[in-house]
Design a binder for these strands. Structure first.
Length: 281
DNA sequence: ACGAGTACCTGGCAGC
DNA sequence: TGCTGCCAGGTACTCG
């Protein structure tokens, strides 16, 4: 599910709910064998610690205590939700995809659910974020205007032969851009996703960087492209609305909103890709 | 180093 | 109503 805007929306939601610095009472692991196994030592390290902040780096969430941070990635289908612990206890049959619960001293419980188990949960020691294997090779944050510049993107793409769309999704270059937003950004920038990254001009790099910022900011404001509501017990209501603003993603065969040409699709780097053959050069 | 392809896993949906 | 096959918003790994 989640690209940067969705993760950011989870982050801000959790931050509000955890603003009272609740103390972690107990952590339970129901299923540790997700993408990267959840360390068995995790409950012991977190019990008794207060939650002091919730941050995001790339598509990762960091739930901070004074000593360690809980690092998590939602993969394709992961989610965090908050439930009343008392309600959770009453439910007779446990959801088989709830892999980890974190009980807090305020009566709430954080629940990590991930049906496909592509997500991950780990611990990061304070000041060890730059050496963590999942974090150390990440590229720049797209909303960091000092680091993510057209010149940076232009230089990074120098001599690269991969399709520019695959290049934009490379988390070592710029983080947070996933399959939906990559298609949307290139449509807005007027650049065909199949173009070799190394053939992008400086002007096009300017437009791509601009559109990444604009699209991600708009999507964050809209609450992401449809993410499940982690406040509610059932978790069924959609809160994100940005999917309504998609111009090409999932629109194969429909009219381009700018020129009316038919939107095309094909696989690129194993992922479905959408573009307007008339608007995107 | 780079690029292409595949694997991981479950659920939902279209088509028969 | 089944069944089958395909697709899904991410990332790490292998191989040439």
């Amino acid at each position: 599910m989640p690209e940067l805007p969705e993760v950011e929306s989870v982050r801000s939601g959790l931050e509000k709910l955890l603003a009272g610095r609740p103390v972690i009472k107990r952590v339970r692991l129901y299923r540790a064998d997700i993408r990267f196994p959840i360390p068995k030592s995790l409950p012991g390290h977190l019990a008794g610690e207060p939650i002091v902040s919730v941050r995001r780096r790339a598509k990762y969430l960091l739930i901070d205590t004074p000593k360690v941070s809980l690092l998590s990635h939602l993969g394709m289908t992961g989610s965090w939700r908050v439930e009343e612990a008392s309600v959770l206890r009453k439910i007779k049959k446990r959801d088989p995809h709830d892999h980890c619960t974190i009980e807090l001293d305020n009566g709430q419980c954080l629940v990590f659910r991930d049906p496909r188990r592509f997500g991950m949960i780990d611990l990061v020691e304070k000041n060890a974020e730059h050496t963590h294997p999942r974090l150390k090779s990440l590229g720049v944050e797209p909303l960091d205007e000092r680091l993510f510049t057209p010149e940076y993107l232009f230089q990074a793409s120098h001599r690269r032969k991969i399709a520019v769309k695959v290049f934009l999704m490379d988390q070592k270059i710029v983080v947070g851009v996933g399959n939906i937003y990559a298609s949307e950004v290139l449509f807005r920038a007027g650049v065909r996703p199949t173009r070799a990254a190394g053939k992008i001009t400086r002007d096009e790099a300017v437009r791509i960087v601009d559109e990444i910022r604009v699209v991600l900011r708009e999507a964050i404001k809209a609450g992401g492209s449809s993410i499940r509501d982690f406040h509610s017990v059932g978790g069924a209501n959609e809160v994100g609305s940005f999917q309504n603003a998609h111009h090409v993603y999932g629109k194969a065969g429909r009219a381009c909103p700018k020129c009316g040409a038919l939107i095309r699709t094909r696989m690129l780097g194993g992922r479905s890709t959408f573009w307007c053959p008339a608007c995107q050069k």
